[in-house]
Computed example of a mutant assay.
Amino acid sequence: MAFSAPASRRELAEINITPLVDVMLVLLVIFMVTAPLLSRPIDAQLPQPVPDAQRVPPNDLVLKLGLAGDYTLDDRPVSLAELRVRLEDARIADPETVLQVEASAGADYQQLVSALAQAHASGIGHIVMRD
Rank of each mutant, 00 (worst) to 15 (best):
A2G: 03
A5H: 09
A5E: 11
A5L: 13
A5D: 07
P6E: 08
A7W: 02
R9P: 00
R10P: 00
E11T: 09
A13L: 14
A13D: 14
E14R: 10
N16E: 14
N16C: 09
N16Q: 12
V21S: 03
D22V: 15
D22C: 13
M24L: 15
L25N: 04
V29E: 05
T34H: 01
L38V: 08
L38S: 12
R40V: 08
R40Q: 14
Q48V: 15
P49M: 08
V50L: 14
P51N: 09
D52G: 11
Q54K: 06
Q54H: 04
Q54W: 10
V56W: 02
V56D: 11
D60N: 06
L61C: 01
L61M: 05
L61T: 00
K64V: 15
G66H: 10
D70I: 07
Y71D: 01
D74R: 02
D75L: 04
R76Y: 02
R76H: 08
V78H: 05
E82I: 02
L83C: 03
V85Q: 13
L87K: 00
L87S: 02
E88R: 13
E88V: 05
E88W: 06
D89Y: 05
A90F: 06
I92T: 07
A93K: 15
E96L: 13
E96V: 02
A103D: 02
A103M: 06
G106Q: 14
G106N: 13
A107M: 09
D108S: 11
Q111E: 12
V113G: 00
A117I: 06
Q118E: 15
Q118Y: 03
Q118V: 10
Q118R: 13
H120I: 02
S122M: 04
S122Q: 03
G125M: 09
V128M: 10
V128F: 08
M129I: 15
D131W: 02
